[in-house]
Amino acid sequence: MNMIKIVVPGDLLDDKPVHIEHAIIENDKTYATVLGSYDEEKKRLVPLEGLWYPVQGDIIIGIVDEEKLNSYSVNLNAPYKGIIVSKFVETQLQNGDVVEATVKEVDKTGTAVLVRSRKLFGGKIIKAKPSKVPRIIGKQDTMLRQLSDGTKATIKVGRNGIIWMKGGDVALATEAILRIQEEAHTPGLTDRIKEMLSGNNKV
């Protein structure tokens, strides 16, 4: 009994109008709009590829790309901009600064209003596919913990797919993350990554 199936844009999900995220209703029928895995029982469609849609509470990593009068604009590597209101910032920010922040809300224009922002100093950032972020973090953070333990690096994964790393063996961590991304849908990945990290525990 497999209630989960892979669907593509245009596939009929329900012949009644049902409100499902990433679906549209036309002529009282419900259709998928993305390549995704669809749980018929729970009526839930999870995209398999692509974009990040900001949701309240998401922790993101972004790069300040414009200083405005009362705010900073943040590049989130997404179709949406982030905005940090200056008065909520402890340290002054500059163009190019990397920040970690939380999405407070998404305004009408699609801009993510960011709070609890914190500047990240030094380190390295890489860009992962947002759809692979859950796998990079793992169930109850297992994969992420394994990555930091195995490389002794501080790793922060933004829901938007930007990952910041510092200290330890960042090169190895990069390699491991790229591999998780490539092999995200294969079983036994946690064990393979564990093996990969254990052989190279140098700092």
């Binding site: 790069i63 790309d65 590049n75 590597n77 190019g96 990397v98 030094g122 380190g123 390295k124 950032i125 860009k127 930007i162």
Partner: peptide, 9 residues
């Protein structure tokens, strides 16, 4: 992505 500086370092 516009993040030359820290990656370069």
């Amino acid at each position: 992505m516009t993040n030359g500086a820290i990656t370069g370092e």
